[in-house]
Design a protein around this nucleic acid. Structure first.
Lengths: 229, 229, 229, 229
DNA sequence: TATGAATGAGCCTTCATTCAT
DNA sequence: AATGAATGAAGGCTCATTCAT
């Protein structure tokens, strides 16, 4: 007679969040239509207003729901950087980042939403930046700084971080282009693993070259640019 | 080579194309509203359907118009790679790419449209890929191959190219994020110039590291990953 | 006379009626939302349909509930008109009418609902007219007839009654206008008392003038209008 | 070939304004539905957005359109108060007011809209008060002051004005009640004419009685209220 | 060639009501 | 007796497109 489980937390609500997450990730906030979302969720058109107040409220709920587990994962991995080399830590970082971003499953929705928010910001932009982008960026910055040593300016460390992130995000943003230019890349686990290795190698080389170039510029500014004829 | 019969090629038509180009670049195809476009062009609401059949037709016309001059520019620069070093050619490539992409002026509209098309493909996607992405990609590939030598596999050359392009595009896609993470970067000519130098240095280091790593992997495949403890 | 079987007449039901009464008075039937009503009553959204069948049912219940006590009050005052002068009885009538109408408290809800019903009739209109408007109107008519004597036609007595009622209701209907035109009037007890005195004086003068004018018209119908140059 | 008449001012626009005016007067802003209005006007659902931007815009247009002629009429009558007696001027005022308010035709829409706005204010309330209510109120105040002489306080003049206006508006607000209580009153021209005579006679008597009462109160405050046993 | 008006599908939202427990 | 979830009709509004001139 008594309801046994308070996991009763409205099945429809959950289905709405999941359906919406998928469509927001795939199509973006504006292109995703409430009617499609409720259809996917097997719910009534009025359900999103009932449960979330509005489409924006649903979006906020999607973020809140997925951010919970995302933050949990983030904090877990924060501790185990123990005695690893900086290069190994960069590899972990990049591999994790890419896996979450490129995995085709509804897992790691948050990473994909964060990526969307970068290209097509919504009202949640500030929150996303604060809660996800900054922390991740700081973690990366720490790794890069360790690799680069003290010789690299703040600005160049930032540049390197953005170069690393940019390489990764491109595979998510420009999926269709990648599919054309690099048809062998299938976004499978093995593909992602190999991509991670490339990005890490490329970026390690990039950081070290930046350090060298910067050192050279600082010491003898006659050598000018890195690339002369 | 010059179009012969545009003796009276309708001033309105031209103004529509220019106004539309700006709004498509800034807001994307869907977010740009034809009412706003005609307002900016000082034209009638019916003008776009009259001249171009539909919003998509207008978009196609915008691409066609800007592709003409873009291709012209591309072919000009194709020849003068003369006796320059591969590094210098990479610098030229990146600098030109970034300038066109990040410059705030209505110049180089095509580059910005191509970038848009990568993130938010429309019906024109195939055309864009064929006419712009492939050619540019091939040019980059040639440069990278020259730098890398014969030791790098086709796949890794592709990876390097995408790494270079990804670094650049990120500054265009994620303008708002860059503004948060790197507020000193102001998208001015000097900023872009310094960014180009970073990207070139980073990428040269990246390519060379890839070569080294790859060579190592090829010779003694027992060493496994590039970065373990 | 007392209802026998409301031993457990549902607390929620009562709270709904009270909350609804307030909102119907303040906002009218259509503008009052059942979600707001149940929120004010601390009840479930389904409660109004469960207890009253529909929003209209709730409205009917509100009327029924408040009409009971209202009618009781009416019948009490009906008898004690004893030896008072007609003018005093008019003063009592107007003062009571205005107090009930303009008092800001949840008291005298019925009077306010009746006023609402006059401007924005609902399905309950007929009932309201029969149970409240007619009785009160007849009471007023009797007073006016006594003041006017036999010389005033039925029609003019009706006119005078409506003039009196109209003066009073305006302060309820057009609260915002009164606030603009007569900002000193604050709807407090003292304000209402003074207003009652004005309305009574004005109306006594009005009735007597009507009698005079009518008498003049009846005797010498050549004089035409009451007011020519 | 040239369009002859620039009365072309969009037929639909005009029809929309007229249809909307009727429905706003009869049902009020909220109860009037855009879909009904466009149906009455024989227009498309999108027409009101096209011509007026929104439902509120349509309402504003209705007010603007009808206020033009209303103000014209007001200014015409302003001058001809020449050598008339105050009573005659009051008669003119009341007759005109009632005619505009109670006439069943779509004429004098403005007066009816102003009455609506008093009971159910919208965003246009302030404008309505400023442009219509205040001017008319001042005109009435001047007449009443002339009739009352210097002996009546500002406050009591205001009270008298509101008493006069209240009498008139009641017949518009409470049409259904009037129809029940006074079924002989048919809102025809003759009815309105007779009503005007009653209101004028009643109000003249009312004002004079107010003066007398006030004078009495001022001189010998022992006599107390107007209505003692 | 060019225009302003008109169209209708579709969007998000509101709300009284009903369902299942 | 009571609840929270779910429903669907309807509301105002947007927008690319088409019509009539």
């Amino acid at each position: 007679m008594v309801t046994l489980s308070n996991e009763h937390e409205s099945d429809t609500r959950q289905r709405l969040i999941e359906a919406a997450a998928g469509m927001f990730v795939e199509q973006g906030f504006n292109a995703a239509k409430v009617r499609d979302i409720v259809a996917h969720a097997g719910a009534n058109i009025a359900a999103v207003n009932y449960h979330f107040g509005s489409k924006e409220g649903l979006y906020a709920a999607v973020i809140q729901y997925h951010s919970a587990q995302a933050i949990e994962v983030l904090s877990q991995q924060a501790g185990d950087d123990g005695g690893r080399t900086p290069a190994a830590r960069l590899h972990d970082y990049v591999r994790t980042f890419l896996k979450r971003l490129l995995t085709q499953t509804p897992q790691f929705t948050m990473s994909k939403l964060v990526a969307r928010e970068m290209v097509e910001p919504t009202a949640a932009f500030g929150l996303i930046i604060e809660k996800f982008v900054w922390p991740q960026y700081h973690a990366l910055q720490a790794i890069v700084r360790t690799i680069a040593g003290e010789k690299l300016s703040e600005e160049l460390v930032r540049r390197c971080c953005l170069s690393i992130v940019g390489q990764c995000l491109y595979y998510q943003f420009a999926r269709q282009v990648v599919a054309c230019l690099d048809p062998e890349f299938g976004y499978g686990p093995a593909d992602v693993e190999r991509l991670a290795e490339h990005v890490v190698a490329f970026s390690l080389g990039g950081i070290r070259q930046s350090v060298r170039t910067h050192a050279g510029e600082a010491q003898k500014s006659h050598s000018g640019h890195v690339n002369d004829r």
